[in-house]
């Protein structure tokens, strides 16, 4: 009975929801093509701010920041995915073992602790052990909080894979490593890739923790944008924002599609 699913006004709310979610982003994207220097008056379509991002006076700073962001995201994402895959295999294929609930809590911990508390704790930690804040500290912090994000899709996918395939392989005298490499891993692949993309984006976007633990002269893209925004929302910021927006959406779409594709196979 379709009628019982329908509630008047709910469609309206949904539309409102989408409008609210997308309006600021659309506005920023539109204004990034604004031809005039003032951010308030519209001066016609132009790509000048995109050019400015890549060739203007602030370009080297943003370029360095972007490089840092990308490399950190790559390294942290990869490390987190590897660690998370191992953890997922243990959690999902290990049956009931003694440390299971504790491990479950541990993996979820970075998601439950408010980000600012993590930031403060990490900064104090690094200062106390005398590790100079900089690229390495950012990397370590990112690896840690990316683990749960990589874990989620991998574990979800792993849970849906019946272990009879691996059992069959073992019955046919395959070694544990062979069973993993040739049977489980290919089936798991969409989940792993999805997890990596998620971890990558989370690392790329992080602001608060990075801001606290970055060292002298080190910027990532979000911290550089924040510093710039504090001095006024300039049009080139909107160009950079739009670029980051597009990258994020691309990655998430990719992750989503890969997951969908994977879901069609057993």
């Amino acid at each position: 009975m379709k009628g019982l699913r329908h509630y008047p006004g709910f469609l309206g709310m949904t539309i409102l929801c989408l409008v609210i979610l997308y309006a600021p982003l659309v506005v920023v994207t539109v204004y990034s093509f604004n031809g005039s220097t003032s951010i308030t008056t519209w001066g016609g379509l132009s790509l000048r701010w995109y050019a400015d991002v890549f060739t203007g006076p602030e370009a080297p700073r943003f370029a360095a920041a972007a490089w840092n962001s990308l490399t950190i995201a790559l390294l942290a994402g990869t490390a987190a995915t590897l660690i998370a895959t191992a953890a997922a295999v243990a959690m999902m294929r290990g049956g009931r073992f003694r440390g299971r609930p504790a491990t479950f809590a541990l993996i979820n911990l970075p998601l439950l602790v408010p980000e600012i508390v993590t930031a403060v704790a990490t900064l104090i930690f690094f200062t106390m052990i005398g590790l100079t804040t900089g690229y390495l500290t950012i990397l370590i912090a990112h690896m840690t909080f990316c683990i749960p994000f990589a874990y989620l899709p991998i574990a979800a996918r792993l849970q849906g894979i019946d272990d009879s395939y691996e059992q069959a392989a073992r019955d046919l005298y395959a070694s544990r490593w062979q069973a993993f490499r040739l049977i489980l891993l290919p089936l798991l692949a969409p989940g792993v890739i999805s997890g990596f993309l998620l971890a990558f984006i989370i690392s790329l976007d992080d602001f608060l923790i990075t801001n606290f633990v970055k060292g002298a002269g080190m910027e990532t893209l979000p911290t550089a944008i924040f510093g710039s925004v504090k001095q006024g929302i300039k049009p080139n910021i909107m160009a950079i924002s739009t670029l980051m927006l597009v990258v994020s959406i691309l990655f998430v779409t990719l992750s989503y599609l890969i997951n969908r594709m994977g879901r069609r196979s057993p």
Binding site: A86, R100, L152, A155, A156, Q159, R176
Partner: peptide
């Protein structure tokens, strides 16, 4: 949303011994 705090699928599938190093 982390899946399943229970026992997971599978009866161990031979990964039992590896739980330590994996985690």
């Amino acid at each position: 949303g982390a899946p399943d705090a229970g026992g997971g699928t599978g009866s161990g599938s031979g990964y039992r011994g590896l739980i330590g190093p994996l985690l």
